[in-house]
Nucleic acid binder design. Structure first.
Length: 217
DNA sequence: CTCCCGATAT
DNA sequence: ATATCAGGAG
Protein backbone atom coordinates (compact mmCIF):
# COMPACT_ATOMS: atom_id res chain seq x y z
CA UNK A 1 0.00 0.00 0.00
CA UNK A 2 1.17 3.50 -0.82
CA UNK A 3 1.16 6.32 1.68
CA UNK A 4 -2.03 7.74 0.19
CA UNK A 5 -3.71 4.34 0.24
CA UNK A 6 -2.84 3.85 3.91
CA UNK A 7 -4.30 7.25 4.74
CA UNK A 8 -7.46 6.36 2.83
CA UNK A 9 -7.58 2.96 4.55
CA UNK A 10 -7.83 4.53 7.99
CA UNK A 11 -10.04 7.39 6.81
CA UNK A 12 -12.60 4.82 5.66
CA UNK A 13 -12.41 2.78 8.86
CA UNK A 14 -12.74 5.98 10.91
CA UNK A 15 -15.74 7.08 8.86
CA UNK A 16 -17.35 3.70 9.46
CA UNK A 17 -16.72 3.81 13.22
CA UNK A 18 -15.98 7.35 14.51
CA UNK A 19 -15.26 6.47 18.15
CA UNK A 20 -13.88 2.94 18.49
CA UNK A 21 -13.54 1.61 22.04
CA UNK A 22 -12.36 -1.57 23.69
CA UNK A 23 -15.13 -4.07 24.33
CA UNK A 24 -13.53 -5.33 27.52
CA UNK A 25 -15.32 -4.05 30.61
CA UNK A 26 -13.31 -2.44 33.42
CA UNK A 27 -13.56 0.38 35.94
CA UNK A 28 -9.94 1.30 36.57
CA UNK A 29 -6.39 0.65 35.40
CA UNK A 30 -5.96 -2.42 37.58
CA UNK A 31 -9.15 -4.04 36.29
CA UNK A 32 -8.04 -3.29 32.74
CA UNK A 33 -4.75 -5.12 33.30
CA UNK A 34 -6.62 -8.12 34.73
CA UNK A 35 -9.24 -8.14 31.96
CA UNK A 36 -6.61 -8.07 29.21
CA UNK A 37 -4.53 -10.75 30.93
CA UNK A 38 -7.63 -12.95 31.07
CA UNK A 39 -8.49 -12.31 27.42
CA UNK A 40 -5.69 -14.39 25.91
CA UNK A 41 -7.18 -16.93 23.48
CA UNK A 42 -10.69 -16.10 24.72
CA UNK A 43 -13.50 -13.89 23.46
CA UNK A 44 -14.23 -10.48 24.99
CA UNK A 45 -17.82 -11.58 25.54
CA UNK A 46 -16.65 -14.58 27.56
CA UNK A 47 -14.21 -12.51 29.60
CA UNK A 48 -16.83 -9.85 30.38
CA UNK A 49 -19.26 -12.51 31.50
CA UNK A 50 -16.77 -13.65 34.13
CA UNK A 51 -15.35 -10.28 35.17
CA UNK A 52 -18.78 -8.71 35.73
CA UNK A 53 -19.16 -10.56 39.04
CA UNK A 54 -15.43 -10.52 39.81
CA UNK A 55 -14.99 -6.76 39.38
CA UNK A 56 -18.08 -6.01 41.46
CA UNK A 57 -16.14 -7.41 44.40
CA UNK A 58 -12.51 -6.83 43.40
CA UNK A 59 -11.37 -3.34 42.46
CA UNK A 60 -7.79 -3.33 43.75
CA UNK A 61 -4.86 -5.76 43.82
CA UNK A 62 -5.19 -5.88 47.61
CA UNK A 63 -8.77 -7.12 47.27
CA UNK A 64 -7.62 -9.71 44.71
CA UNK A 65 -5.12 -11.09 47.22
CA UNK A 66 -7.90 -11.29 49.80
CA UNK A 67 -10.04 -13.26 47.35
CA UNK A 68 -7.13 -15.63 46.76
CA UNK A 69 -6.19 -17.93 43.90
CA UNK A 70 -8.89 -20.48 44.64
CA UNK A 71 -11.61 -17.83 44.83
CA UNK A 72 -10.39 -16.27 41.60
CA UNK A 73 -10.38 -19.63 39.86
CA UNK A 74 -14.05 -20.07 40.70
CA UNK A 75 -14.84 -16.75 39.00
CA UNK A 76 -12.89 -17.43 35.81
CA UNK A 77 -13.26 -21.17 35.30
CA UNK A 78 -15.49 -20.56 32.27
CA UNK A 79 -12.54 -18.93 30.49
CA UNK A 80 -9.95 -21.03 28.69
CA UNK A 81 -6.48 -21.36 30.27
CA UNK A 82 -8.07 -20.42 33.59
CA UNK A 83 -5.53 -22.20 35.75
CA UNK A 84 -2.44 -20.39 34.53
CA UNK A 85 -4.40 -17.15 34.32
CA UNK A 86 -5.44 -17.41 37.98
CA UNK A 87 -1.85 -17.98 39.04
CA UNK A 88 -0.64 -15.06 36.95
CA UNK A 89 -3.27 -12.62 38.18
CA UNK A 90 -2.53 -13.45 41.82
CA UNK A 91 1.22 -13.12 41.23
CA UNK A 92 0.72 -9.90 39.30
CA UNK A 93 -1.44 -8.48 42.07
CA UNK A 94 1.16 -9.37 44.69
CA UNK A 95 3.88 -7.64 42.68
CA UNK A 96 1.72 -4.53 42.24
CA UNK A 97 1.15 -4.35 46.00
CA UNK A 98 4.75 -5.12 46.96
CA UNK A 99 6.65 -3.10 44.38
CA UNK A 100 4.31 -0.49 42.93
CA UNK A 101 2.18 0.68 45.86
CA UNK A 102 -0.87 -0.98 44.31
CA UNK A 103 -0.71 1.30 41.26
CA UNK A 104 -0.38 0.22 37.63
CA UNK A 105 2.91 1.48 36.13
CA UNK A 106 2.74 3.59 32.96
CA UNK A 107 5.71 2.22 31.03
CA UNK A 108 6.00 -0.87 28.88
CA UNK A 109 9.25 -1.75 30.59
CA UNK A 110 7.53 -2.00 33.98
CA UNK A 111 4.28 -3.52 32.70
CA UNK A 112 5.94 -6.54 31.09
CA UNK A 113 7.53 -7.40 34.43
CA UNK A 114 4.05 -8.38 35.64
CA UNK A 115 3.36 -12.13 35.36
CA UNK A 116 0.96 -12.82 32.50
CA UNK A 117 1.63 -9.44 30.91
CA UNK A 118 3.57 -9.56 27.65
CA UNK A 119 4.22 -6.94 25.03
CA UNK A 120 0.73 -7.10 23.54
CA UNK A 121 -1.09 -6.74 26.87
CA UNK A 122 1.25 -3.91 27.90
CA UNK A 123 0.50 -2.10 24.63
CA UNK A 124 -3.24 -2.40 25.24
CA UNK A 125 -2.94 -0.86 28.71
CA UNK A 126 -0.67 1.93 27.44
CA UNK A 127 -3.15 2.76 24.68
CA UNK A 128 -6.48 2.32 26.45
CA UNK A 129 -5.59 3.76 29.84
CA UNK A 130 -2.56 5.98 29.38
CA UNK A 131 -3.45 7.28 25.93
CA UNK A 132 -0.18 6.30 24.28
CA UNK A 133 0.06 5.64 20.54
CA UNK A 134 0.91 1.95 20.81
CA UNK A 135 0.00 -0.88 18.42
CA UNK A 136 -1.01 -4.01 20.31
CA UNK A 137 -0.80 -6.73 17.69
CA UNK A 138 -3.22 -9.46 18.70
CA UNK A 139 -4.61 -12.24 16.52
CA UNK A 140 -7.00 -9.86 14.74
CA UNK A 141 -4.50 -7.13 13.94
CA UNK A 142 -1.94 -9.72 12.86
CA UNK A 143 -4.47 -11.17 10.43
CA UNK A 144 -5.76 -7.82 9.12
CA UNK A 145 -2.24 -6.46 8.66
CA UNK A 146 -1.15 -9.50 6.69
CA UNK A 147 -4.33 -9.96 4.66
CA UNK A 148 -4.78 -6.40 3.56
CA UNK A 149 -1.11 -5.70 2.93
CA UNK A 150 -1.15 -2.81 5.40
CA UNK A 151 1.55 -4.46 7.51
CA UNK A 152 2.78 -7.91 6.60
CA UNK A 153 5.08 -9.86 8.91
CA UNK A 154 5.86 -13.33 10.18
CA UNK A 155 5.63 -12.31 13.83
CA UNK A 156 3.47 -9.83 15.75
CA UNK A 157 6.63 -7.81 16.45
CA UNK A 158 7.29 -7.40 12.72
CA UNK A 159 3.70 -6.29 12.10
CA UNK A 160 3.94 -3.84 14.99
CA UNK A 161 7.15 -2.36 13.62
CA UNK A 162 5.55 -1.74 10.22
CA UNK A 163 2.45 -0.16 11.79
CA UNK A 164 4.78 2.03 13.85
CA UNK A 165 6.33 3.32 10.63
CA UNK A 166 3.26 3.49 8.40
CA UNK A 167 0.21 4.65 10.37
CA UNK A 168 -0.34 8.38 9.71
CA UNK A 169 -0.36 10.79 12.67
CA UNK A 170 -4.12 11.51 12.79
CA UNK A 171 -4.91 7.81 13.19
CA UNK A 172 -2.13 6.59 15.46
CA UNK A 173 -4.10 6.70 18.71
CA UNK A 174 -7.19 4.94 17.32
CA UNK A 175 -5.53 2.60 14.80
CA UNK A 176 -5.32 -0.21 17.31
CA UNK A 177 -9.09 -0.21 17.86
CA UNK A 178 -10.05 0.35 14.25
CA UNK A 179 -7.97 -2.62 13.20
CA UNK A 180 -9.12 -4.97 15.94
CA UNK A 181 -12.82 -4.19 15.47
CA UNK A 182 -12.46 -4.50 11.72
CA UNK A 183 -10.82 -7.90 12.23
CA UNK A 184 -13.46 -9.06 14.68
CA UNK A 185 -16.58 -8.13 12.76
CA UNK A 186 -15.64 -7.86 9.06
CA UNK A 187 -12.21 -9.30 8.27
CA UNK A 188 -12.99 -12.44 10.27
CA UNK A 189 -10.64 -15.43 10.43
CA UNK A 190 -12.88 -18.12 8.98
CA UNK A 191 -15.48 -16.15 7.05
CA UNK A 192 -14.22 -12.71 5.99
CA UNK A 193 -17.15 -10.55 4.87
CA UNK A 194 -15.46 -8.75 2.01
CA UNK A 195 -18.80 -7.87 0.40
CA UNK A 196 -19.43 -5.36 3.18
CA UNK A 197 -15.86 -4.29 3.81
CA UNK A 198 -15.21 -0.54 3.60
CA UNK A 199 -11.56 -1.01 2.56
CA UNK A 200 -11.98 -3.88 0.09
CA UNK A 201 -10.68 -1.77 -2.81
CA UNK A 202 -7.37 -1.21 -1.00
CA UNK A 203 -6.94 -4.82 0.11
CA UNK A 204 -4.45 -7.36 -1.25
CA UNK A 205 -6.34 -10.44 -0.02
CA UNK A 206 -6.17 -13.02 -2.78
CA UNK A 207 -9.32 -14.93 -1.98
CA UNK A 208 -11.69 -12.03 -1.70
CA UNK A 209 -15.23 -13.06 -0.86
CA UNK A 210 -16.95 -10.47 -2.97
CA UNK A 211 -20.36 -12.08 -3.11
CA UNK A 212 -22.64 -12.15 -0.13
CA UNK A 213 -23.49 -15.83 0.44
CA UNK A 214 -27.18 -16.49 -0.07
CA UNK A 215 -29.31 -16.89 2.99
CA UNK A 216 -27.10 -14.68 5.17
CA UNK A 217 -27.73 -11.38 6.82
C1' DC B 1 8.73 -25.14 19.98
C1' DT B 2 4.95 -26.88 23.43
C1' DC B 3 1.68 -26.28 26.87
C1' DC B 4 -2.31 -24.09 28.81
C1' DC B 5 -8.08 -24.80 27.89
C1' DG B 6 -13.62 -23.45 28.07
C1' DA B 7 -17.12 -21.39 25.05
C1' DT B 8 -18.72 -20.43 20.63
C1' DA B 9 -19.15 -20.25 15.48
C1' DT B 10 -18.83 -22.75 11.44
C1' DA C 1 -15.91 -32.26 14.57
C1' DT C 2 -12.85 -28.51 14.53
C1' DA C 3 -11.15 -23.73 14.13
C1' DT C 4 -10.94 -19.73 16.67
C1' DC C 5 -10.91 -16.50 20.41
C1' DA C 6 -7.64 -9.09 22.44
C1' DG C 7 -1.11 -14.56 24.42
C1' DG C 8 2.40 -15.63 27.57
C1' DA C 9 5.68 -18.64 29.94
C1' DG C 10 8.96 -22.37 30.13
Amino acid sequence: MTKDQIFEFFRLLAEDNPDPQTELEYGNAYQLVVAVALSAQATDVGVNKATRALFAKVKTPQQMLELGEEGLREHIKTIGLFNSKAKNVIALSRLLVDEYGGKVPDSREELVKLPGVGRKTANVVLNCWFGQETFAVDTHIFRVGNRTGLAKGKTPEQVEAKLEKRVPAPFRLGAHHWLILHGRYVCKARTPECWRCPVVDLCSFKKKVLEKPKGRV
